[in-house]
């Protein structure tokens, strides 16, 4: 038997509304975390009402801001500080702001940086790809020519 959980997409401006609704229904805030994606971040806000587990997935662009829910749920402030320090998510109106000093790490937003590096490395410019195609074609032609000559030689020899 496996218990189910819900995953619902939500736009950033609706988040405080949903948080207030969750609190009025007696749900507890279980966790908040950020995930790197191609377009920026996915923020996952999980609430649980007894065993019912509900997660809102909030997509966010890197330059966008999100409103803090630490006024609604006091426990949110630690998670928000964590996201801000490790991912560089911009959060407005935080009740308790450590100003990127929750963990006091040397590297700035280590999770975000790595994602950008990953994106940057494998890409080639279109010209480079064209050149590579040409080089590959030339190589193929040369190989074919060599094989032909080899076959001719073989024929001549025997």
């Amino acid at each position: 038997m496996r218990e189910n959980y819900e995953l619902i997409d939500l736009s950033p401006d609706l988040l405080p509304l949903k948080a207030v609704k969750a609190k009025s229904e007696g749900a507890r805030l279980v966790q908040i975390c950020a995930v790197n994606t191609d377009y920026g971040y996915d923020l996952l806000y999980s609430f649980a009402q007894m065993y019912h587990f509900l997660t809102y997935k909030v997509p966010l662009k890197p330059d966008e801001e999100i409103v803090s829910i630490s006024d609604i749920y006091q426990s949110a402030s630690l998670y928000e500080n964590e996201m801000r320090e490790l991912f560089g998510v911009q959060i407005r109106h935080m009740k308790l702001n450590y100003k990127d000093k929750l963990y006091t790490i040397d590297e700035v937003t280590p999770f975000k940086k790595k994602a950008e590096e990953k994106k940057a490395t494998p890409k080639f410019t279109p010209e480079q790809i064209e050149e590579m195609k040409k080089a590959a074609a030339a190589k193929k032609a040369a190989a074919a020519k060599a094989a032909e000559e080899q076959a001719k030689e073989d024929k001549d020899n025997g």
Partner: peptide, 15 residues
């Protein structure tokens, strides 16, 4: 993996 997240009980018990 893209992301592994562990939310541990003590983190939430701090508040």
């Amino acid at each position: 993996l893209d992301r592994v997240r562990v939310r541990t009980p003590t983190f939430t018990n701090l508040t």
